[in-house]
C-alpha cells in the first residue's frame, strides 16, 4: 500500500510549468527522498500534496483516498522557509498550531508537554519565539510539525541551519517517528543526508521525475565496475592487458576499472593465481551526488 500516489500531476504558473506530468508512488512506512536542484519543482509538488495549492491536472491520492479537506490534519509539513509568530509565546503558539491540526485544547497540551520534556525545553513555554535563537526556533517548529502525530510527514530541508548536535537530535526523532509507522518525505538537495537516511528516492529536475527507486538498486545500476584493491607485491602487467584500466595508483592501493566484458572475479582470480597477497578489496559504488550531477546534466541537455 502506498501512502501517496501521484498520477500525471501538472502545475503551471504564468510563464513556466513547475510540475510537468509527474507520477509517483511513495510506499507506506518508508523514508522517501525527494531530490532535485533548486527550482526543480520540489516545493511546488509539496505545496499540492499539503493542499496549499491545487493541481491543474492529475490526481493526488493519499492513503487510498483522493486528496480532500480531512487530509491536512493527517499531514505534518515543515516548510523550507521556517516561520513562527515572533511575538507569540512558545506554548500558546504550539497549542494554536496543534489545534488547527484538529487536536483539542487538552490533547494539544498533553502532547506538547511530552515533546517539550523530550527536548528538555519545558522552560521555554512562556518565552516569546523572537527571544529564542534560530536553532531553538527550529526545534519549536519541528514540534509543531509532529505534535498531531501525522501519517505522513513532509520535511523540506529539515537540517538547514542546525548545528551537528541538533541535527543528530532531529535525525533521531525522524527515525523514531518512522519506526512508529509514520511515512516521511524528505526533500533536499544535500545528497549525503539522503544516502544516510532514505531507502527510496525520486530525482526531480525541471518539473519531471528523471530517476526513481531504491537507493541501493539505483547505485548498483549506476555502478561502473570500479574496485579498490590493497595488496603486497606488484601488479602483473599481463593480467591488466586490455581487460582492466588503472584509474589511480598509489604505493599500496589501486583503483581499477573493469573494461567491457570483464568482472571483478576475473581480476581477483588473476591476482591470486599470480601469488599477489591481497589485503583489502572493495567495490566502489557511485555516490548519489555523482549520479545526481550526471543525471541532471543529461536531462538539461
Amino acid at each position: 500500500m502506498d501512502v501517496l500516489t501521484l498520477r500525471n500531476v501538472v502545475k503551471r504558473y504564468s510563464n513556466h510549468i513547475a510540475v510537468n506530468d509527474v507520477s509517483l508512488n511513495i510506499p507506506k512506512g518508508k523514508i522517501f527522498g525527494m531530490l532535485g536542484p533548486n527550482g526543480a519543482g520540489k516545493t511546488s509538488l509539496i505545496r499540492m500534496i499539503t493542499s496549499i495549492t491545487k493541481a491543474d491536472q492529475g490526481e493526488i491520492i493519499i492513503d487510498g483516498e483522493p486528496l480532500n479537506a480531512n487530509h491536512p490534519t493527517q499531514i505534518g509539513y515543515l516548510p523550507e522557509e521556517r516561520g513562527l509568530y515572533k511575538k507569540m509565546k512558545v506554548g500558546e503558539q504550539l497549542i494554536y498550531l496543534a489545534r488547527l491540526k484538529g487536536l483539542s485544547q487538552r490533547q494539544a497540551k498533553e502532547k506538547l508537554n511530552y515533546w517539550l520534556e523530550k527536548f528538555d525545553i519545558t522552560s521555554w513555554w512562556d518565552k516569546k519565539v523572537g527571544e529564542l535563537s534560530k536553532g531553538m526556533q527550529q526545534k519549536v517548529q519541528f514540534i509543531a510539525t509532529v505534535v498531531h502525530e501525522p501519517k505522513l510527514m513532509i520535511l523540506d530541508e529539515p537540517f538547514s541551519g542546525l548545528d551537528p548536535i541538533n541535527t543528530n537530535l532531529i535525525k533521531d526523532e525522524i527515525y523514531e517517528m518512522n519506526q512508529k509507522g509514520t511515512s516521511i518525505i524528505f526533500s533536499t538537495h544535500r545528497m549525503e543526508q539522503v544516502e544516510q537516511i532514505c531507502e527510496e528516492i525520486a530525482l526531480i529536475n525541471q518539473g519531471k521525475i528523471i530517476l526513481e527507486g531504491n537507493v541501493d538498486e539505483i547505485k548498483n545500476s549506476y555502478k561502473d565496475n570500479k574496485f579498490e584493491i590493497e595488496f603486497d607485491g606488484k601488479i602483473p602487467e599481463d593480467l591488466l592487458a586490455d581487460s582492466f584500466t588503472i584509474l589511480e595508483d598509489s604505493d599500496k592501493a589501486l583503483v581499477i576499472q573493469a573494461n567491457e566484458g570483464h568482472d571483478s572475479n576475473e581480476l581477483l582470480k588473476g591476482l591470486i593465481d599470480r601469488g599477489v597477497q591481497i589485503r583489502a578489496y572493495r567495490e566502489i559504488l557511485p555516490t548519489l551526488n555523482e549520479i545526481f550531477i550526471k543525471k541532471v546534466g543529461e536531462s538539461n541537455e
Binding site: 491536512p72 499531514i75 509539513y77 516548510p79 522557509e81 516561520g83 509568530y85 498550531l97 488547527l100
Partner: peptide
C-alpha cells in the same frame, strides 16, 4: 503582511 514575512503562512495554510 507579518504572516507573509514570517513565512508562518505556509504552515497555516497547510492546515486551513
Amino acid at each position: 503582511n507579518e504572516e507573509k514575512i514570517n513565512r508562518i503562512v505556509e504552515v497555516l495554510i497547510s492546515s486551513v
